[in-house]
Structures are given as C-alpha cells and as structure tokens.
Simulated scan of single mutants.
Amino acid sequence: MRTLVVLAAATSLLLALTACTGTDEEPTSRPSTSPTGSPTSSPSANPGSSSPLQPAPDPISVAALADADLPGGDLRLGAVRERTDSFTSYDVTFGSTRSGRGSRRMTISGVLNVPTGRGPFPAVVLAHGYIDPAYYERGQGMTRERGHLATAGYVALHVDYRNHAESDDDPRVETAVRLGYSADVVAAARALAATDRVRVDADRIALFGRSMGGGVMLKALGAEPGLFAAGVGWASVSSLEAENFAQFQASDASTARLRAATRGRHGLPTDDPAFWRGISARPLLDRITEPVLLVHGRLDETCPPRWASATHRALRRAGVDATLEWYDDQHAFGPAFVTAMDRTVRFLRDSMPQ
C-alpha cells in the first residue's frame, strides 16, 4: 500500500485500508431468508445541530459532518461505456464540496448505469471499498453490483470519491479524507435528485456500501437522516474506528509512520479514545431513520463477522429497522453473490415501494 494515503493526522482513517487476515468469529446462526423482524422501538427523532450549551464537535468527526451543509448537484453525462438490452452505462461527474456550503466546489467522477425504459426510476448510490487511489480506475470495485441493480430497474451511480480516478483532489486528504467520502455520497444523492438528464424518483434513492463503503454508508445515513430511503452494507468494516485501526494498521510494520503521525496529533486509540469514537459511525446511529440491511459472509477473512453482529445490535438498540443476513461466503462474495444481490433487491423494493 502506498504511503501517500498515509493520513498524517490520521483522522478519518478510518475505515478499512487493505485486506487483511485475522481470526474471525464465526456466527452461529444460519442464513435467513427473511428480515429478522421489526425493532422493538421506533427510530428516534432526528436531533438538531449541537446545542449552544454544548461544546462544538471536533471539526474532524461524524458530528461535525452532520452539522455541515453538504450540497451536491450538476450531474453531467459523459462518454457511453456500455450498452446492453437492460441498461446504458455512462461516465459521469457531479459536484461535491470540501467542507460545506460556501467552501470550494469539487468535481467527483463516477459511473452511472441507467435502465432501459422511460422511468422515473428508483436509484442506488454505490460506495466502494478500499482500493489504493494510485491504482484505482473509474467505476472500480462494484461493477457486478452496478450491473445487477440496473438490470433490476435501478439507476446505479458508482461514486469514485475525492482523490480517486478523475475526481478532484482534496488537500485535506491527510486529515479528513474518509469523512469526505461520506460527503461525496451525500452529494451524489442530491445530484441524482436534482438532475433532469436522467428520470430519477427523488424519493427513492438508496445508499449501498461495500467493505470500507459500509462505513461510508453508515456515516452518511447518520449525518443526513432522511436523505436516503434505505441503506445497505455488504461485508462492512466496523462501526468503531478503533477496531478498524487494530485490524488493518496497528500490526502492519509498513504503517509505522502513520502510527507516529497519529500519535503526534490525536494519539492512538488507546491515547485518545474520545477522538476515535468521534470519527466512528456508532455514536450517531440513533440519527438514522432509514431501514438498513447488513449482508456478511461467515467466512469473511477481511472484516470479522463479529463486527456485523455488533453493528446490527447497535443499530437495533438505537431504534433502527435493521436486518442482518448471513451467507456461507468470503469477503468478496463469490458463490453467494447472485443470491445475496437478489435478497438486496427485494429489500430495496420493500423499502422503496412505488
């Protein structure tokens, strides 16, 4: 892994960086074929911005992301990448922002699959997992998911994130890039809702994250409750960033500079647990108003299955309508991919009915 992505302040670091092996805690339940049931409590009301009596949140935190204005729009269709009987695929760009309304506008690249037909179509924003930005190519990481969704009748917008492919670079890459990823998927949803270039049903836009993108998804739902109609997380990283650090960085000798830089500004998770909790999704799960589907493989060698169980429990405790589905597969989802995607499409149809 290249050290350019080394977050000198390591602040948002913060989802998973690379694949890694470890001792996974295998779930004992079998894969279910239906939702696990309704939560015992209703989702809590959305809290507003920080009370004047409370200190302002750390500017590098999910709470600060929730307080920020995160505009998006100006979806532009570029070259046609592919045409099939079911959909047409385009290179696209749209607008995001570095830190909120009034700050410098950024252009984010991506790939858009548009189903054949008149629409308006429901849509899904796709948040991919970690791929070294030095080698990442436009639309990489969720090609199968994008095609499956478009064939099922969903506009699918794959977000490249800032500092990836043809997206603009964010000079804060060394301090807050990962939170910027969540800002970019929020901007993508707003771009889809506002565009007149594709017929999208603005009330039926979901967010689907894979691996690192699962953490991006949860942070975006917590930061912007009500923007999306549903959330999906496949093989997701932990909703606690200290666990991601321990799994993906703490034992890797190549991250010595990263660990030193982190210690210098905020400390390692054991030095500054409040900061690391603040950049995690879990403390703001009670802001989520949308149903959430988590999909995980019992044999996941990268993101331990116990993380999915813990996040699911935390979501349910927070009053979120959350479902966890297990499959006998690994992190990349090979044999179970089609079955899991069919289940995901059913969840989206149930969550975003016409």
Rank of each mutant, 00 (worst) to 15 (best):
M1S: 06
V5R: 10
A16V: 15
P31D: 00
S32M: 04
P35L: 04
P35Q: 02
G37Q: 05
S38C: 04
S41N: 12
S42M: 02
P43N: 09
S44R: 11
A45M: 09
P52E: 02
I60W: 15
A63N: 01
A64R: 11
A66Y: 09
D69Y: 07
G73N: 01
R76F: 02
R76T: 04
A79S: 10
V80Q: 03
S96Y: 15
R101K: 12
G102N: 04
I108C: 02
V111T: 13
N113C: 05
V114L: 14
G119T: 07
G119Y: 08
V124G: 12
V125Q: 13
G129P: 08
G139Q: 00
G141R: 15
G147W: 03
A150K: 00
G153A: 14
A156Q: 07
R162D: 10
A165H: 07
E166P: 02
S167D: 05
D169P: 12
D170M: 13
P171C: 10
T175R: 11
A183S: 06
D184M: 07
V185L: 04
L192Q: 12
L192A: 11
T195N: 07
T195H: 15
I205T: 12
A206K: 07
L207C: 06
M212Q: 07
G215P: 14
V216P: 13
L221G: 15
L221Y: 06
E224W: 06
G233V: 15
S239P: 12
L240I: 07
E243S: 01
E243P: 03
N244E: 01
Q247H: 15
Q249I: 06
D252F: 01
A256D: 06
R257K: 00
L258G: 00
W276L: 02
R277S: 13
S280G: 11
R282H: 14
P283E: 04
D286P: 11
L293A: 06
H296N: 10
G297N: 12
R298L: 10
E301N: 12
P305A: 14
W307L: 05
S309R: 07
H312Q: 14
L324Y: 08
E325F: 09
D328S: 06
Q330T: 08
H331K: 05
F333E: 06
A336Y: 10
V338K: 13
A340S: 10
V345N: 11
M352N: 03
P353D: 04
